[in-house]
Design a protein around this nucleic acid. Structure first.
Length: 422
RNA sequence: GGAGAAAUGGCAGAGCGGUUGAAUGCGGCAGUCUUGAAAACUGUUUUAGUGUAAGCUAACGGGGGUUCGAAUCCCUCUUUCUCCGCCA
């Protein structure tokens, strides 16, 4: 969530930045300011009351010690009255605080300066493009036909075991998954990321920490017996490592990479665009996460883009990078770049990575801070990106590299695969 | 899953109803001494809110209660440890 300090001190700027999402939040911001003010006034009253009570309690203690029981009893009555007044004030304060928090939770992050105004994906800006159109055989097939032709991914079998969106990877298909995961992890480690293997079920506090809750409650699989959520991305457990943590300034930036399966309910999706590997309920992803100093976070965002670019280039997939417009960005993001791979057989772009800077939006909820040289605690910036998500990479690799006689896989994967084509 | 014990500052560890926001030790930081370092000595060392500031308020795993007053008593949840059971 946005910090109250920012809302208080840069009110107009925040409103203008939010407008880039195509929404006018002026009224909400005004309401937050009013709530904040009355909350602080109430708090002052309560604290004055408590201070009086503390003095009184001390006096009563002293009277008891000196044996003046009558005097103590007299003061006790006064103390009880104070306490009752405090209780009322406390209830009012809690109510104001809840309203304020609720309001703050509802406001999305303020887009960064570079982000364009806009409401729809059509308004995203293409900032980079690489690669050439793949040369395909005349009878080029979409990946869902290739996977069954070569018997490497079995959607039907997944339906039987679990349901739609849970494919079974078989033989070379399974080995391709494993190769990609290892390739992505190794490349990240080479680039200086520290590998972690986090839990894939998280508690409620973690869901709130990265902003999936209360926002996207319905998107996550939820185990109600133990109140745990299946992660929609490794961003959740990895970023939550740094919840309630005060880092040393010189520790920044922290760079983590982790592979996890990801689970998304994707309620309400349908149609050809979700066919095959295009949208799954369970998929694999290698995620890079950084905790950064505020002055460096945009530089770091660029370096993360470079890393993903390098992966795409090595895989030899034609791709483009979009800087999302305000309206197409996620709730918690201040700036997001999407990578899209060109899918030759489907003749469309497939989103394969999303790299974002959240500035202090997540850190504020997480209470992820660093200590400055002069001993002050400041909120860190958090960033993350897919490097990379597997299914659409697999789809593009299969479709773009198909020939009459088989599918040739890129050289960078050969050492990991133990074979070169399917 | 059963039985028992515990949770205090960066760490270790006192306190078990009334200047205890918290002894003591270690660590960290600053200083004295030294050419420099070590040692020794001295000082300092949680966080959040509010306020120009002094200050005030809150926090001893989380939540609730008893009391004029709670780190200290009670309830509850969570976590950890020991023993037993089960098990990749």
């Amino acid at each position: 969530m946005l910090t109250l300090t920012a809302i208080r001190t840069q009110t107009q700027e925040i409103i203008e930045r939010l407008a880039k999402r195509g929404i006018d939040r002026t009224a909400d911001i005004q309401q937050i300011l009013i709530l904040d003010e009355s909350k602080r006034a109430k708090q002052t009253l309560l604290e004055q009351n408590l201070a009086k009570g503390n003095v009184l309690a001390k006096e009563i203690g002293d009277l008891f010690k000196s044996g003046n029981k009558a005097g103590a009893d007299e003061k006790k009555i006064e103390s009880v009255e104070l306490k009752e007044a405090a209780k009322v004030l406390e209830t009012e304060l809690t109510e104001l605080d809840n309203q304020l928090t609720q309001k703050l939770y509802e406001i999305p992050n303020a887009p960064a300066a570079k982000v364009a105004y806009g409401k729809t994906p059509e308004e995203n800006e293409t900032v980079y493009e690489w690669g050439v159109d793949p040369v395909l055989p005349a009878n080029a097939k979409p990946h869902w036909e290739l996977t069954s032709q070569y018997d490497i991914i079995d959607f039907e079998l997944g339906n039987k075991i679990t349901g739609a969106g849970f494919p079974v990877y078989k033989g070379k298909g399974a080995r391709l998954q494993r190769a990609l995961i290892n390739f992505f992890l190794d490349e990240a480690i080479k680039a200086g990321y520290y590998e972690v293997q986090p839990p894939i079920l998280v508690n409620e506090a973690s869901g709130y920490g990265t902003g999936q809750l209360p926002d996207k409650e319905g998107q996550m699989y939820h185990d109600k017996t133990d109140n745990l959520y299946l992660i929609p991305t490794a961003e959740v457990p990895i970023t939550n490592i740094y919840r309630d943590v005060i880092l040393k300034e010189e520790e920044l930036p922290i760079r983590n990479v982790g592979y996890t399966p990801c689970f998304r309910r994707e309620a309400g999706s349908y149609g050809a665009h979700v066919r095959g590997l295009n949208r799954l309920h369970q998929f694999d992803k290698v995620e890079i996460v950084q905790i950064a100093h505020p002055t460096q976070s945009y530089e770091i965002l660029e370096s993360m883009l470079e890393h993903v670019k390098m992966l795409m280039t090595k895989l030899g997939l034609k791709f483009r990078i979009l800087r999302l417009c305000g309206g197409d960005m996620g709730f918690a993001s201040a700036m997001t770049y999407d990578f899209e791979a060109w899918s030759g057989a489907q003749q469309r772009w497939l989103e394969v990575s999303s790299v974002s800077n959240f500035e202090t939006f997540q850190a504020n909820r997480l209470k992820c801070r660093y200590k400055t040289k002069d001993g002050k605690n400041e909120l860190a910036h958090t960033l993350n990106g897919s490097a990379l998500a597997l299914p659409r990479i697999v789809a593009s690799l299969l479709e773009n590299n198909q020939t009459e006689t088989g599918i040739n896989l890129p050289e960078c994967l050969h050492p990991y695969l133990g074979f070169t084509s399917i």
